[in-house]
Amino acid sequence: MKFQSTYALVMKDVRSELRTRYALNALLMFVVTSVTTVLFALRSDNPSAQLLAGMFWVVVFFTAMSGLSRIFVSEEERGTTLTLRLLTIPSVVFVGKLVVNCLLTLTLTAAVSVLYVWAFPGFAIVSWDVFIATVFLGSLGFASASTILAAIIAKANVRGSLYPVLAFPVLVPLLMTVMNATARALEGETIALAFGDLQVLVGYLLVMTAGSFLLFDYVWVE
């Protein structure tokens, strides 16, 4: 029963996204422009793996910050928040929105990965297993922390600029870990060496998802 309504909520968001391409187009164009900017900045040099791994996540962070808040802000703008609140329970809303945000971040990181591999000769992934695990867990971690922040931001007055301000301190442990692990993947370290980083990522994902699941009631219900 609850699974069905969660599924319905996810499908509703996916369908309206596919019809309007509101978030997706903006996100992908944002990725292209920011990767181009990085490309201009680093064109003449031969950047190190550490630097490229850092710039990879800088692009992911700012792109996510530009688009992920839409998930709740759009409901607020269309005036459909109240309908959603009447129709279903908070946990269904949270899980549904979290799944949609996970799909968005995974698309986003996949796009950034493809562009980086294509545009930077120095961004040669040696340990694919480490890279894929890092990007996958990192994307989910991003989504888990940013979903509840999007719900908070939807109630505030200045949404656009406040979102990265709120999200950055919460995302710092994740960002430092994924940058470290991505650099390991570029330097060709084995998954055993990167295991500690991946443990931190799993821990972050669990803590953030559980924490925001418990706190979401207080954000959603007035």
């Binding site: 509840i148 908070i152 709120l166 710092v172 972050y204 207080y218 954000v219």
Partner: peptide, 20 residues
Amino acid sequence: RLSAVYSILAGLTVPFFIFA
């Protein structure tokens, strides 16, 4: 309400700064 939620959410990251 929202600032209380935010401070708790931010507090959740503290163990990562201490241990990770």
